[in-house]
Amino acid sequence: MSLLEIKSLSVHEADTDRCLVQDLSFTLRKNTCLAIVGESGSGKSLTAKAILGLIPPWLEVTGEVIYNKRNLLHEKGSVLRKIRGQKICMILQDAMTAFNPLDTIGKQMIETFRENLGVTKREARIIAETALHRVHMHTPKEVLKKYPHQLSGGMLQRVMISITIMLEPDIIIADEPTTALDSINQREVVEQFRLLREIMGTSILFISHDLGVVQYLADDLIVMRNGECVETGQASEIFSNPQHEYTRFLIRTRVNLAAPFQKSMEERVI
Rank of each mutant, 00 (worst) to 15 (best):
Val159Cys: 00
Leu156Met: 00
Ser152Gly: 09
Leu80Cys: 06
Arg84Thr: 10
Gly106Tyr: 12
Glu123Ala: 15
Ile161Pro: 00
Leu132Trp: 07
Phe99Asp: 05
Asn71Gln: 10
Ile163Thr: 03
Pro148Lys: 08
Val119Lys: 06
Arg70Ala: 15
Leu117Ala: 07
His133Leu: 13
Ile66Lys: 11
Arg84Gln: 06
Arg134Leu: 09
Leu92Lys: 03
Asp94Cys: 07
Val135Gly: 12
Val79Ser: 15
Leu80Ser: 05
Lys69Cys: 13
Pro148Asn: 08
Gln150His: 01
Tyr67Asp: 12
Val143Gln: 08
Gln157Trp: 06
Met90Gly: 09
Arg70Pro: 01
Ile66Leu: 14
Ile83Tyr: 09
Arg81Glu: 12
Pro148Arg: 06
Leu73Tyr: 03
Pro140Gly: 09
Ser162Asp: 03
Leu151Tyr: 02
Ile126Phe: 05
Glu64Asn: 02
Ile163Asp: 04
Arg122Leu: 14
Leu92Arg: 09
Ile126Gly: 00
Lys107Ile: 14
Arg134Ala: 07
Lys107Phe: 13
Thr97Tyr: 05
His149Ile: 03
Asp94Val: 06
Cys89Met: 15
Lys141Thr: 00
Lys145Ser: 08
Lys145Thr: 03
Val159Trp: 05
Thr120Phe: 01
Ile66Arg: 00
Arg122Asp: 15
Thr120Lys: 04
Arg114Met: 03
Val119Leu: 11
Leu73Ser: 07
Pro140Gln: 09
Phe99Ser: 08
Asp94Met: 08
Leu102Lys: 04
Lys121Met: 11
Ala95Met: 07
Ala131His: 03
Asn71His: 12
Ala95Ser: 04
Gln150Glu: 13
Met109Phe: 13
Leu144Pro: 08
Leu102Cys: 12
Leu72Met: 14
Gln157Lys: 06
His138Ser: 10
Met90Glu: 13
Pro148Tyr: 10
His136Asp: 12
Val159Gln: 05
Glu115Phe: 12
His133Glu: 14
Phe99Thr: 06
Asn100Thr: 07
Tyr67Glu: 12
Ile126Val: 15
Pro101Thr: 02
Lys76Tyr: 00
Glu75Val: 05
Gly118Leu: 09
Ile165Trp: 08
Ala131Ile: 01
Ile105Lys: 11
His136Phe: 11
Lys121Gln: 14
His138Ile: 14
Met137Tyr: 05
Thr104Val: 10
Leu72Glu: 10
Arg134Val: 00
Asp94Trp: 02
Val135Lys: 04
Asn71Ala: 14
Gly153Glu: 00
Ile91His: 01
Met160Tyr: 04
Lys141Ala: 00
